[in-house]
């Protein structure tokens, strides 16, 4: 009898806590998703409906003129191209330096391991500041080139340590047998260690790709010609102009979203540009989020 009572009690407490969890989490999920839906809806809704605030989470008076305008009348494609170049080239370079650095440092017998590791730790905890870094970039003459955007993340110490820790966790016997078979260090790394480390390599590549793709500050600091603008700079300009119009920030304009045509308003344009910049991330998300979660786990086991 008593046991049964406990079972019921446990059952209700379980049910109640489960219900609370579901409600709270669904609310949080909606908070994350609905704003995105709102922006997407706005980007393909009729201009006057947008300005009137009638668009919530579903498009009203569907039109694609705004998207068309953003794609073809603004610098969208050029900045997309710039971001793709910086991201792909940057990720490849960064992964190369990360793996080639992590491998020697992961070997317990490597002479000089402590010294080289210390160099990376020092550079991680003490930063010269953005102004000296700018002077270096300007001195080596890569200001306003893709290289200026790639250099800052060509090796991120934290990512290097993730890879190094993963290498350290690999069974030593495999490497030893490769060595006995006469494979040198390069062969061992390339044909034994790297194939065994695909999970961490995928995760860290993704971390680099996101860092490059999302970076705003370095692109702004190190590029200035309009040809070199990355997608983040391009997007910022559009939002900022829209905001300046609407919020009456810099001058006397207050037109309630200046209309370019009946359908295309600055409000709609901002939404369309944000939507188009979100598309690559959202398109890749289902494929890569598995690796990200793996990465967090790997990184938090020993960061």
């Amino acid at each position: 009898m008593k046991k049964n009572q406990y079972a019921i009690l446990q059952d209700t407490s379980e049910k109640v806590s489960h219900a609370i969890a579901v409600v709270v989490l669904v609310l949080l999920a909606l908070m994350a998703i609905l704003p995105c839906l709102h922006v997407i809806s706005k980007s393909i809704s009729h201009g006057t409906r947008v300005t009137a605030g009638e668009v919530l989470f579903w498009p009203v008076g569907v039109q694609f003129e705004t998207i068309d305008y953003v794609l073809n009348k603004t610098a969208f494609w050029n900045s997309l191209k710039n971001s793709l170049i910086v991201t792909s080239l940057g990720t490849v370079i960064a992964m190369f330096t990360t793996i080639t650095t992590a491998y020697p440092l992961s070997k317990p017998s490597f002479k000089g391991r402590k010294l080289f590791t210390l160099l990376y730790v020092i550079s991680m905890v003490f930063f010269g500041g953005i102004v000296p870094a700018y002077m270096v970039v300007r001195t080596i003459g890569i200001l306003d080139t893709y290289w200026a955007c790639i250099l800052p993340f060509a090796i991120v110490q934290f990512n290097m340590f993730i890879v190094k820790n993963y290498f350290e966790g690999l069974p030593e016997s495999v490497e030893e047998s490769a060595m006995i078979d006469g494979a040198g260090d390069v062969r061992t790394l390339w044909s034994i260690v790297v194939p065994m480390s695909m999970p961490v390599i995928a995760t860290v590549s993704l971390l680099y790709a996101i860092t490059y793709w999302n970076n705003y500050f370095h692109a702004m600091m190190y590029t200035n010609s309009s040809d070199m603008r990355t997608i983040q700079l391009y997007l910022y300009d559009i939002i900022n102009n829209g905001q300046a119009f609407a919020e009456n920030l810099y001058s006397g304009w207050n037109t309630g979203g200046a209309a370019i045509s009946a359908n295309v308003t600055t409000e709609g344009m901002v939404a369309a540009a944000v939507t188009m910049s979100m598309v690559p991330i959202v398109a890749f998300y289902p494929f890569v989020q598995r690796f990200m979660i793996q990465g967090i786990t790997v990184g938090s086991v020993k960061g």
């Binding site: 669904v26 949080l28 999920a29 995105c36 709102h38 605030g53 997007l235 409000e267 910049s277 990200m292």
Partner: peptide, 29 residues
């Protein structure tokens, strides 16, 4: 649920700015 709550982490600050401008700007929702 986890995937949905986690997705904004992948957006750049500029995209987040754009989204919140759409929500909270003078003519936002």
């Amino acid at each position: 649920l986890q995937t949905s709550i986690y997705i904004p982490y992948f957006f750049s600050w500029v995209v987040v700015f754009g989204i919140f401008y759409s929500l909270l700007g003078t003519y936002g929702i």
